[in-house]
Design a protein around this nucleic acid. Structure first.
Lengths: 257, 257
DNA sequence: CTATCTTTGTGCACGCGTTCACAAAGACAT
DNA sequence: ATGTCTTTGTGAACGCGTGCACAAAGATAG
């Protein structure tokens, strides 16, 4: 019943830190590229550079999985690919259902990176009856009324939500009721899920806003003597100290929508 | 020249912790919803619940911005919306360019959440000459040859990369050369950027793999007495101790692509 | 067999982020 | 004016993650 429990709070899973788990796919990608070039072994320094991380961090990460390297030589690429794949659970097939086949849902269905690495788009679900039967990326869209059955029959345990924000919580509840225990949420909504269900959030708007923050800061630093404009340290006229400072007139309406 | 410097390493910006910056958009979204319902004030407890975070964390986050609350009452919604918007730099217009108009790029161009909150899709760029002139989401696609000019003329400082992975680094280099200092990267590639350029990464494949890890762990815990199958603690036959343990035959080919 | 050289694996220290718990502050009733 | 009650703002403790620096381990040459 935890409201808005995003990501993993601090529950270390099976001794492997969450931060390490988040980097394993990165290592795996770099190792796969090396494997395709038939590189037999790789040092922590080389692999770290390819993955964009510190070499000490990489070695510590791998130490959580076990001692898979050879001192003086490095790591066996194929063996490490297998170990990480196994640790991440990519040696098995993961049927995935995408709910909400709008622009984004359709794009994800077509996305090649989805299909590889053990993930398979098993079902596309939408609430619009007009879309039922229409194939998207070669997969017919099914109606949301049959959500329970679709999830059960396909053994889906990972759901992807690409609905409008208003429908996200309801879809989430139905997915969880049908047996889904992992959700990738693209809707800009805080989802409430019961314990035992993992939610990961991908929010384009939030990413842009974080970039805007740093962008503004960079601009404010370079032009420290601008035309009274973006000085992030000078707050505007603070409203009176009364309890209701609503319609004072100096509060610009910032958000268009 | 820093290779693979993603996110912010540890550089605290303007006294505001990076973790706090990442949560400000979340608060802003919740506050905007309250504002639309004409709620005048909100307590840290209520707002924290709406944003899905701890109330103490929220209060500490706001304390970095200043003392904008009233003890015994809570926070003025409109005032806080303005303060956070200003802090995030959303009071100004941010022209954004999307490079790589495939499925995902087109979906982002159509995505409504992009347009709101000060972000404006100023240009769509693709390397395919056949797409030049074709309107996507009402915006004509322009050819990548004119990238420099497009970025300069529109004053774009935030670029979104939705190209195939092979083209991402080259596109990134050209964007940076043209003056872009913030990049949102959807391509599964580690980007190298010079200092002063911020890169944020959105990687669907990585998110799924993290979910798969926890999913596997959950499945392994519940069925602790399965048919010798997914025991995450028992490593398979370790290859011989020689330096080259490549083609031993017992190394399953895990990655299909 | 011994020496040297490379690279892993990790002990340790440090800093950031989170959470608790509580004093200070202000609203509100009397 | 005073007391009570609610809620903020923050000091302090704790835990996680990161990076340094080095010893241990093994390969390789002589």
């Amino acid at each position: 019943m935890a409201t808005g429990r995003n990501h993993r709070p601090a529950t270390r899973s099976r001794g492997i830190p969450e931060a390490t788990v988040a980097r394993l796919p990165l290592y795996l990608r770099a190792l796969t590229a090396l494997s395709e070039r038939s590189v037999p072994t790789v040092s922590s320094e080389e692999l770290a550079a390819a993955a964009g991380v510190n070499s000490a961090k990489l070695r510590k990460d791998f130490s959580y999985l076990g001692s898979y390297g050879t001192r003086g030589v490095g790591y066996d690429v194929e063996y490490l690919v297998y170990q990480i794949s196994r640790e991440l659970g990519l040696t098995q097939d993961w049927p995935v259902a995408i709910v909400g086949i709008g622009n984004l849902g359709a794009a994800l269905a077509n996305y090649g990176g989805f299909a590889s690495r053990g993930f398979r788009v098993a079902a596309l679900i939408d609430a619009d009856p007009a879309m039922a039967g229409t194939p998207v990326a070669g997969i017919p869209v099914q109606h949301a009324d049959d959500l329970d059955r679709i999830i059960s029959e396909n053994g889906v345990s990972i759901g992807v939500i690409t609905t409008p924000p208003g429908a996200a919580q309801q879809v989430c509840d139905r997915l969880v009721a049908a047996g889904v225990t992992s959700i990738l949420n693209f809707a800009p909504t805080v989802l409430s899920v019961p314990d035992g269900v993992d939610v990961r959030k991908v929010d384009l708007s939030i990413e842009l806003q974080i970039l805007a923050f740093h962008e503004q800061r960079k601009a404010g630093e370079e032009a420290a003597s601008a035309d009274s404009g973006p000085d992030p340290a000078a707050p505007p006229v603070r409203a009176a100290t009364s309890s209701r400072k609503g319609p004072d007139g100096d509060m610009p309406a910032v958000m268009p929508a």
